[in-house]
Design a protein around this nucleic acid. Structure first.
Lengths: 219, 219
DNA sequence: ATGTTATAAATTATCTATAAAAGGAGAACC
DNA sequence: GGTTCTCCTTTTATAGATAATTTATAACAT
């Protein structure tokens, strides 16, 4: 007997399409044709429609009634908007997580940062980065907040991949280390302020000489 | 020829069910059976399933694969969580809206507050309250932020209706007036701080002697 | 000749109807 | 008393029908 998946096919389609949109395999504005997608997944168009509704709610697709659904496009304004929302919500989450943070968690976060510094491609760097944030924020025990943050992080990752499609230099995360240091010293207000600045650093050009004009990764 | 509605039937079903859940006509934990709902709306179950996905994303329903979908239940922790998220996001929105606020908008907000003070039932008071917040926040021009806030306000309204099902005293919104006064004097930092306190005042008993132990409306 | 409107065809989204798979309830059985 | 089997309910998915929109083509006017 084949293991019956705990996941519905609509959920699988939704997840796969989300990954493609975030990775940039599906370009902004591109049409999502339900029959084609249904055929690709060996399903009919009904679960595909359900997947569309979810992508719509995540802000990854836009649907115009009777005219189909397209991959959501984004401009610099939306990048900034998402960054501001992340800053507001992640500081809230961290504030509530602080009392539940253990040295073990901070060590794991440190490892994630160290691993990220060794990454040669954007994709794996982003994963390490996401792990860092997840480790610090999850202990806040606010499921709805964490779910919203996850959606915003997905949008951030999309922008990140779009900006760094080809070029990528390994970078050291000074912000991450500053946040960890502040938390270890019990200076949570400094950690919160650093996290805010860290997340807001989006779409802004790199400061000094080196590789100016290039967007900075989305913390 | 009947006017073809701009709205899809899935959207209509979703909106109607959301209204019922918020109003408390559908109790927390109650099962949502797609065939029954489909029959009621004179539709088939496919658009009903799409509506479910949207309610799920809004946090108004929870779906367990192969075991159906139920109205989301909530406890005091979630009430507080939503309040904190609202406080974080509404202050962000107001901060960006301030430069675009006009005296005309503030007057409209004042009228909405005055109208709310005359309301005899929770339902219409909540609508006036929502109008107040919408007027002040919409000019921030951050669509994604506003959409998130709208979802959180819906959740807030649900808690409000659940708490004040029967009893309701007309109340005057001192917070609203304080916010408007601060905005008129250009003291936006005071307006922001007041808005935060205002929104956080959720599920907390009324302070002084009068009607203690009763929850306070969700600003 | 160019641009515009009208009409026809094809493509696509949306919904209904129907079939299949899974879960839950209750009776029969060990 | 607990387990298993069967039936019924409900969710899930498929196939087909309907409606709307876009694209293409042709006629007409400028």
């Amino acid at each position: 007997m084949s293991t019956p998946p705990d996941e519905t096919v609509a959920a699988r389609i939704s997840r796969t399409l989300a990954d493609r949109i975030i990775a940039g395999a599906l370009a902004p504005g591109e049409r999502l044709r339900q029959d084609h997608i249904a055929e690709e997944f060996g399903a009919s168009h009904v679960p595909v429609r359900e997947a569309f509704r979810r992508l719509e709610a995540q802000g990854l697709a836009v649907s115009i009634p009777r005219r189909g659904v397209r991959v959501a496009s984004f401009d610099l304004n939306e990048v900034k908007e998402v960054a501001q929302m992340r800053a507001a919500l992640e500081t809230l989450a961290l504030r509530h997580a602080v009392p539940h943070l253990t040295p073990a968690i901070l060590d794991q976060a440190e490892q994630a940062t160290a691993f990220g510094d060794t990454c040669k491609d954007v994709r794996s760097w982003e994963e390490a980065n996401r792990t860092f944030h997840r480790l610090l924020l999850t202990p806040c025990r606010m499921p709805r907040l964490l779910s919203s943050i996850a959606d915003l992080q997905a949008a951030s990752a999309r922008f990140l991949f779009a900006a760094w499609r080809s070029t990528w230099d390994a970078r050291t995360d000074h912000d991450h280390r500053a946040i960890l240091a502040a938390l270890r010293q019990g200076k949570s207000d400094i950690a919160l302020a650093t996290l805010t600045r860290h997340v807001l650093r989006v779409g802004t050009p790199v400061a000094a000489g080196a590789k100016a004009r290039q967007p900075v990764p989305l913390g």
